[in-house]
Measured scan of single mutants.
Amino acid sequence: RVIAMPSVRKYAREKGVDIRLVQGTGKNGRVLKEDIDAWLA
């Protein structure tokens, strides 16, 4: 299970990103909004 705040999950869904593919850089591997942006870049 991916650790991410609900707002980040929603952001990823809106961008069409599968959050399971994104490498989290936050505490304990948490996926941050910046990680979604970096994955899209």
Rank of each mutant, 00 (worst) to 15 (best):
K15W: 10
D35L: 01
I19M: 06
P6C: 08
R30F: 08
G24S: 05
G26Y: 01
K10T: 07
V17A: 04
R30Q: 12
E14W: 09
G16Y: 07
V31N: 00
A38V: 10
I36G: 00
G16K: 10
L21C: 08
P6W: 05
G16M: 09
L32V: 10
I36F: 00
R1T: 15
K15N: 13
G24T: 03
D35W: 00
K33G: 04
R30K: 12
K27V: 14
V2M: 06
D37E: 06
P6T: 13
G29L: 06
G16C: 08
V8D: 04
R1S: 12
D35E: 01
L32E: 12
L21P: 02
K33Y: 08
A41F: 15
A4T: 08
Y11Q: 05
R1H: 15
R13V: 13
G29V: 02
Y11M: 04
G16T: 04
V2W: 02
A12F: 01
M5Y: 14
R9W: 13
R1A: 11
G24K: 03
K10V: 08
G16N: 10
V2L: 11
V8G: 02
R9H: 12
N28I: 05
L32S: 10
E34H: 15
G16V: 04
D35V: 00
S7V: 08
K15V: 11
G24R: 03
M5D: 11
G29I: 02
D37K: 05
V22G: 01
D18M: 05
P6Q: 08
I36V: 12
A4W: 02
L32T: 14
L40D: 04
R1E: 15
P6G: 09
T25F: 03
D35R: 00
Y11T: 06
L40K: 06
P6Y: 05
I19W: 06
V17L: 06
K10E: 14
M5S: 12
D37I: 06
Y11K: 05
G26W: 01
G24V: 03
V2D: 07
R13N: 09
R13P: 01
Q23S: 13
K33F: 09
A12R: 00
G29A: 07
E34P: 08
K27D: 10
R1F: 04
Q23R: 13
V8E: 08
G29N: 11
I3G: 06
D37A: 04
R20G: 09
V22M: 06
K15E: 06
R20E: 10
A4L: 04
K10L: 11
K33D: 04
I19P: 03
R20I: 08
K15Y: 07
D37G: 03
R13F: 12
A12S: 06
S7R: 11
I36Y: 00
L40E: 05
R30I: 12
D37Q: 05
V8L: 05
Y11L: 05
G24H: 03
A38S: 14
W39N: 04
R30S: 11
Q23P: 15
P6F: 04
S7H: 12
I19T: 03
G16L: 07
V8K: 01
Q23E: 13
A41I: 14
A41E: 15
